[in-house]
């Protein structure tokens, strides 16, 4: 199921819908699994009245985790060697997110074929919420 270098070209893209109408409950679910109970993500009263945001918003790491699923579904299990992102805008309950990986380079390191991707996750208004890169080991 892994990708083959011989079938990839620079500029090729792969996209996946990560979530439609993101639910607050998913933020609770992520808080529980990750252990990050920052009330900014689950406690609307605190977030509005104390922190000064319009509502709770998603953990950046939830967006990264969902984007990671797009990558591993594409490159195969255990194939990622690097994955790094910047969080460029907040993700709010109700958002739809779509992530895209674009082949940036194909290369070889110590006899191992690698592919570098740029990674971008955007919301329903086409605002980029996550921008990053990833590298995966691919078959010849």
């Amino acid at each position: 199921m892994a990708l083959k270098a011989s079938e990839l070209e620079v500029g090729m893209t792969h996209s996946a819908t990560l979530v439609e109408d993101l639910k607050r409950t998913q933020l609770v679910q992520y808080a529980g699994a990750s252990g990050d109970y920052n009330p900014l993500h689950t406690d609307d009263l605190y977030t509005r009245e104390v922190a000064g945001y319009p509502s709770v918003f998603a953990h950046g790491m939830l967006t990264m985790g969902m984007t990671g699923a797009m990558l591993t579904d594409y490159v195969g299990d255990g194939r990622l060697t690097k994955f790094g992102v910047r969080f460029t805008a907040q993700v709010w309950p109700g958002d739809d997110l779509k992530a895209t990986a674009t082949v940036q380079a194909l290369r070889e390191e110590n006899g191992v074929k690698l592919v570098d991707f740029t990674v971008s996750t955007r919301n329903q208004d086409d605002v980029e919420v996550l921008s990053g890169s990833a590298t995966a080991r691919v078959d010849p």
Partner: peptide, 9 residues
């Protein structure tokens, strides 16, 4: 807030 996260596996 969390601005960036990078992993090397």
């Amino acid at each position: 807030l969390h601005a960036e996260q990078h992993f090397e596996y």
